[in-house]
Write a protein that binds this DNA or RNA. Structure first.
Lengths: 222, 222
DNA sequence: AATAACCTTACGGTTTTCCGCATATGGTAG
DNA sequence: CTACCATATGCGGAAAACCGTAAGGTTATT
């Protein structure tokens, strides 16, 4: 099936398992592990240059920061860079991230071939995903497919996130208004910001801004 | 070293790695995996009853909910129940949770023998932890030990947590004041609540209540 | 081109928060 | 007893948030 696979995953406990699975169950000859996105990108470039490219990439999305300052902080950036240089190697994302907005954005971007949710059967699903992708189809974990289908997924815009973020940083609505005005972010008037917040409070069932920001944090919007 | 070890971990990708590590590197004869805390507790009870107890337990803290409704939602509850029935089996926690308050509370509770942070070297640290615990000492991942040592870990009282919690639920300070008064929680006056909040804002470097609640959430205080 | 629907902005009044200062209460040491 | 200190409470004014309403602008529809 696949002979040269790269796995990008910061937690050694997980990459250990994926590595073993790829070698033992799927008989992959060459498995390359990366704990950092930059590393992964360099290895990827070298493989391309040497005309020994990877024929599958499995990557996480979030990576914990440590002493090394990495210029590629997330799997998202890595994926973009790989596609930017024109590679069409299949990429399977394997992440605990189950927020509909994130998953939706990635799956609809056509940048990746599969999205596996790390869960109780994550490794099993990853194997299925590899098979499916090998057959030229795309793969999405069942739980995610279900949650994407639900209509009550609250569509939150970039604007709203900025707003909530600034609030959580202690800015007053007036300060945000002025900042938006200066940076040509529309709408910027205090009144509009109030209105936006009212809509958000309504959707997230928050009585006031404090609760709004709290639940936004709970939901991982910010 | 250890012959019968239970691993409680919901992500199969991780338990696969720990399992392999225990069997191959540490030559553990019997490794029992559980993906749910309830399961784990039942297995634990059975082992005790049969006089074939586990001699080490490795557990995660957070477990994702799925269709099964489990009565033991977190590793914390599991640990408490095990200790409640008087077992002194060594327990090592293995979690991505790095919030100082959470780690501190557990380590100082004397309920556990070690705390390993899942990270780039999580599996390696887990092995070290097992060795250390086997020598009768307790183990704490270096990153965590460092962060616990920092003095700026803010000692927060139960009262403050209640206050922040109510705020995050959208209560006004006036409502909280009345509620405290009715329930004989002192101090209850609006003025005192303001003062408490000012102290908290000062300590957590928050400009207003929104930011205060947001950082309290970040720190895992609420 | 006219109309409707929607978005942005403005404004005024009320509530809540924020802030400083004054007062009260209670325990402790001299 | 008194002086002192920490804590709890009270109060008033300023700032910010909250809420409804209305006016001006833009876009889509017909």
């Amino acid at each position: 099936m696949y002979n040269k696979v790269m796995v990008i995953e910061d937690l050694d406990s997980i990459s250990y398992g994926i590595d073993a699975m790829l070698r033992n169950k799927l008989k992959v000859a060459q498995v390359v592990l990366s704990q950092y996105c930059d590393d992964a990108y360099l290895k990827f470039l070298k493989a391309e240059r040497d005309h020994l490219p990877f024929d599958l990439i499995i990557t996480d999305l979030c990576f914990t920061k440590d002493h090394r300052d990495s210029r590629l902080p997330s799997g998202n950036e890595f994926i973009k860079k790989v596609r930017d240089i024109g590679s069409r190697v299949p990429i399977i994302v394997c992440s605990v991230e189950d927020k509909p907005t994130v998953v939706k954005k990635l799956m609809h971007s056509n940048l990746i071939s599969g999205y596996v949710l790390k869960g109780r059967k994550g490794l099993k699903h990853l194997m299925e995903a590899i098979q499916t992708v090998n057959n030229g189809e795309s793969y999405l974990s069942q739980e995610l497919a279900d949650s994407l289908k639900r209509k009550d997924i609250f569509e939150i815009e970039d604007y709203d996130v900025r707003l909530l973020l600034h609030l959580s940083e202690g800015w007053t609505q007036d300060e945000i208004s002025k900042h938006f005005h200066e940076n040509n972010i529309s709408p910027s008037s205090l009144s509009s910001i109030e209105k936006k917040l009212n809509r958000l409070k309504d959707e997230l069932k928050a009585k006031n801004t404090i609760q709004l920001v709290a639940t936004a944090k709970d939901l991982g919007l910010i």
